[in-house]
Amino acid sequence: MACRRHRPPTVCQATGWFLRHPDTLESDEHQLLQTLAADCPALAALREHVRAFAQMMMRRTGEGLEQWMKRVQADDLPELHSFVTGLRRDFDAADVGPTLPHNFGKVEGHVNRVKMLKPQMYGLPIDGPSIR
Results as ranks from 00 to 15, higher is better:
residue 110 H to E: 14
residue 114 V to T: 11
residue 98 P to Q: 01
residue 109 G to F: 09
residue 99 T to N: 09
residue 105 G to M: 14
residue 110 H to R: 15
residue 90 D to S: 11
residue 90 D to N: 08
residue 82 S to R: 10
residue 84 V to F: 02
residue 107 V to W: 12
residue 108 E to P: 05
residue 107 V to C: 12
residue 109 G to R: 08
residue 114 V to I: 15
residue 105 G to P: 03
residue 111 V to L: 08
residue 85 T to P: 06
residue 99 T to V: 13
residue 93 A to E: 08
residue 111 V to A: 04
residue 110 H to C: 13
residue 96 V to C: 05
residue 83 F to R: 01
residue 106 K to R: 04
residue 104 F to S: 10
residue 109 G to T: 04
residue 113 R to M: 15
residue 84 V to T: 00
residue 88 R to G: 06
residue 84 V to N: 00
residue 98 P to N: 02
residue 111 V to I: 10
residue 108 E to Y: 12
residue 82 S to H: 13
residue 87 L to H: 02
residue 109 G to A: 05
residue 89 R to S: 13
residue 84 V to K: 02
residue 95 D to L: 05
residue 104 F to P: 11
residue 81 H to F: 13
residue 112 N to F: 01
residue 112 N to Q: 03
residue 97 G to K: 01
residue 87 L to S: 00
residue 83 F to G: 00
residue 91 F to Y: 00
residue 102 H to F: 12
residue 112 N to H: 02
residue 87 L to Q: 02
residue 93 A to T: 10
residue 90 D to I: 07
residue 104 F to I: 15
residue 103 N to R: 05
residue 89 R to V: 04
residue 108 E to L: 10
residue 84 V to Y: 00
residue 107 V to D: 10
residue 92 D to I: 05
residue 101 P to V: 01
residue 82 S to E: 14
residue 113 R to V: 09
residue 101 P to C: 05
residue 82 S to W: 11
residue 92 D to V: 06
residue 90 D to V: 06
residue 105 G to C: 15
residue 82 S to T: 14
residue 93 A to L: 15
residue 104 F to Y: 11
residue 90 D to L: 14
residue 104 F to K: 09
residue 96 V to L: 13
residue 106 K to W: 09
residue 86 G to S: 09
residue 108 E to C: 07
residue 95 D to W: 13
residue 108 E to D: 05
residue 113 R to Y: 12
residue 112 N to K: 02
residue 97 G to L: 03
residue 111 V to N: 05
residue 88 R to P: 00
residue 109 G to K: 03
residue 81 H to G: 15
residue 94 A to R: 03
residue 106 K to E: 09
residue 115 K to V: 01
residue 81 H to V: 13
residue 85 T to E: 13
residue 83 F to N: 00
residue 115 K to L: 04
residue 114 V to K: 06
residue 106 K to C: 12
residue 98 P to Y: 01
residue 116 M to Y: 01
residue 87 L to T: 02
residue 94 A to T: 04
residue 89 R to K: 04
residue 107 V to Q: 15
residue 85 T to C: 07
residue 88 R to N: 07
residue 88 R to D: 11
residue 107 V to M: 04
residue 105 G to L: 12
residue 103 N to K: 07
residue 98 P to V: 00
residue 105 G to Y: 08
